[in-house]
Design a binder for these strands. Sequence first.
DNA 1: GATCGGGTTTGGATCGATCCAGAAGGGGCC
DNA 2: GGCCCCTTCTGGATCGATCCAAACCCGATC
Lengths: 346, 346
Amino acid sequence: MERTTRTPSRHPAVAPTLADVAERAGVSRQTVSNAVNNPDLLRGDTLARVQAAIVELGYVPNRAARNLRTRASHLIGLRMSPVQEGTANAAMDRFVHSLVWTSREAGYHVLLFSGEGPDPLEGYDDLLRSTAVDAFVVTDTYLGNPQATWLRERRAPFVAFGRPWGDDDAKHPWVDVDGAAGTEQATTHLLDRGHTRIAWIGWRKDSFIGEDRRAGWSRALRERGHSTTGLASRVEDTVWSGREASAVLLDEANPSAFVCASDTLAMGVLHTLAERGLHPGRDIAVVGFDDSQVAQVVHPGLTSVRQPLEEVAIAVVRSLEDLLATPSYVGEGLLLTPTLTVRGSS
Amino acid sequence: MERTTRTPSRHPAVAPTLADVAERAGVSRQTVSNAVNNPDLLRGDTLARVQAAIVELGYVPNRAARNLRTRASHLIGLRMSPVQEGTANAAMDRFVHSLVWTSREAGYHVLLFSGEGPDPLEGYDDLLRSTAVDAFVVTDTYLGNPQATWLRERRAPFVAFGRPWGDDDAKHPWVDVDGAAGTEQATTHLLDRGHTRIAWIGWRKDSFIGEDRRAGWSRALRERGHSTTGLASRVEDTVWSGREASAVLLDEANPSAFVCASDTLAMGVLHTLAERGLHPGRDIAVVGFDDSQVAQVVHPGLTSVRQPLEEVAIAVVRSLEDLLATPSYVGEGLLLTPTLTVRGSS
DNA sequence: GATCGGGTTTGGATCGATCCAGAAGGGGCC
DNA sequence: GGCCCCTTCTGGATCGATCCAAACCCGATC
């Protein structure tokens, strides 16, 4: 394979190839490949010579060629869930950040794709079969969750952020945050501050995540011998719903504190308090969930359960590495504990 | 090239190749390739036959092979800027969403990479030289902006979201939002509501973006013959700074309304109002910038300038397509006008 | 009937890396 | 010295698509 018609390798317009480096260093192509991927195989002086040539030419391996040969892309697919305006959900953003950062350390990049449209599986299939990505990270494992089932059937490698709710025979790796532990912390925190009538505003009963978070609240209250009756409300995840629910609860159940399944709902509570001239933290305590930007900047600061998304990302990437290294890898689940960020609202 | 040792093509574990499709359809490889990429070149019946074979085998072109041959990856690189906790910046999230969505329509995917660490150019170089991405979208073109300069020198294709501030001979395509027009709208809106003493809280003077937004405020006031003296404050982009600045302005300049360079600063104003028992919207009007989630969920709703990020993404992708289609493409700039979302705070 | 031209179709070469089997090189051991 | 072994290095084949130049087909033209 002669390169006679090619511009000299010093010319920056054409990227140098492995063959160029080999010629420069006076070794074969395979030796250069080894210098890059298995330096241990080379004798010290040869390695030094090859590395010098690599630096001189500014050689960087061509990904497409490598991907073709190794049948791997070193890309992780992540589907962007549809935007929800009017909610305070910043969790996704933080998670993506952590994931990108952690993946980089493991030699992977994150490929975003859009899953909007009627079919949530749209996109997964193409990316998988065109070998565009090595694996997926699946984030919204709410009830039913078609992606996980579908991916499992295709024997596609993936790790889920979120438990396989209601699917006990699911055998894929997943990482999740113990929501119940979070709301239990929040409730205990309020009990320690002297509150006894602590209300819950959560999501509709068909949300596994919502019921999990609710369980933490009721567990904490019952453990200390306090009642939960009449103190719970289950609504949609909107500010408006939180506002309505808190208004009703204030009128009918006389709570001195609220624990909410999301910062969005907690903001609804703050609306009600503002309308009634009540001061959050002083008159009524409020705790949210997610530690979103909203919780951080609102007056007087919203106490909120913070998910350890950095750790989630680390665990996800670790699972991913295991999964890709061992095709027969049996999925494991990992549950991480959130922390409570206390601010002015409690 | 015989495939005798291979499992039958019906076996789903091995992805069918173009050669398999060709054999099935009784045509050559090139014909299949044309059926996929240039259907016009085929006679009707041949095309139908090939397409049938493609469907039967479930053929999807292998990206790595295509990328290698065409020297293109159909990936767009986007660097994630470092997270800023405690600010209300949701703009990035919305933009990424729109970009992913728009790119998909143009046949591109978005590759995220992390730019944390001392060198902001870290990552760009590797991705570019390893032909991992075809182009970049550069987002933070604040002052100086080393990426743009560096990328231009490398003749790397990129489109910037943000003007090349203070660099008049920059000849790359960019898309930006007319911040001054946004704050001018906001100020005019307040003037129309009867306010005359309208204060400004913005960023430090070395921020081009901040000065641009400030210009809109002062222009609107001067056009209607109102004074700006003593009514402007320039601080860091934090809630705390906004709180301090608004407290000082209230004491010394007696404004009835605030226009802010960001929702973060506007939240600071809301803090001050809450502390003084003043009601936003009723006693003092407040306008923010970015229409973040915070603005949407806070009580009683924060009026805010909303950037048309969907349109920005569309324009960015369009520029990118031109750029990649015509290597000699001369960069153009495009300035889009934001809108004002009016809520309870004004 | 042979030639021409166009739209179609073909097979070989190629992109740049890695896999693989085998060939040098250099000691150690009998 | 000869043999064997282990480390180090080599060159051909390969991954799966596209580029390219040439061959094919078939009706229109002379």
